[in-house]
């Protein structure tokens, strides 16, 4: 069996296992292709620099999908993501090592759901995306 959290095991203050992501140029390209997104800052380094970016920019919604994965990997396949929100505070660039961390901040027994506070930081500790999510846990 697995160790996915349930309403009877989850506690406020529980920490989600940290997740690391690091997007290569090929991954940025694949995301642009899969999302039909021709924005040049994601594949044309000279143009990204011209717009004032240090390097190729990691797509915001790609990081959004990493956030949802961070939650659903922890909560398990029978859980249901109810909501998620994030703010873009600073850019992530190609090759940056990105670290996702999260904590259970509230438990709603009636709704069988928990609230999570999540952060995506780069290796310097700069907060790139603060996020919040609500997820309905499976089982008793």
């Amino acid at each position: 069996m697995n160790n996915y959290p349930t309403m009877s095991t989850v506690q406020i203050g529980d920490e989600l296992p940290k997740m690391k992501k690091q997007a290569s140029e090929a991954e940025l390209f694949l995301y642009s292709a899969a999302s039909f997104n021709p924005h040049r800052i994601h594949y044309d380094r000279a143009y990204a620099n011209f717009e004032g970016h240090d390097d190729l920019v990691v797509h915001g919604p790609l990081q959004g999908s990493w956030l949802t994965q961070f939650v659903t990997d922890w909560a398990g396949p029978r859980a249901r993501l109810l909501s998620i929100e994030w703010q873009n505070r600073a850019s992530a660039f190609v090759g940056d090592e990105l670290i996702f961390a999260g904590t259970v901040t509230a438990i709603d027994q009636a709704n069988t759901s928990v609230e999570l506070e999540i952060s995506e930081k780069n290796i310097d500790g700069t907060l790139l995306m603060p996020a919040k999510a609500n997820v309905r846990l499976a089982g008793a």
Partner: peptide, 21 residues
């Protein structure tokens, strides 16, 4: 394609038995 591009290989996107379960 989207799931592969974001690196989210959750079986509920790839394995019908897992999704139904």
């Amino acid at each position: 394609r989207y799931a592969y591009a974001v690196g989210d290989l959750n079986p509920i996107y790839f394995d019908e038995t897992a999704a139904v379960a």
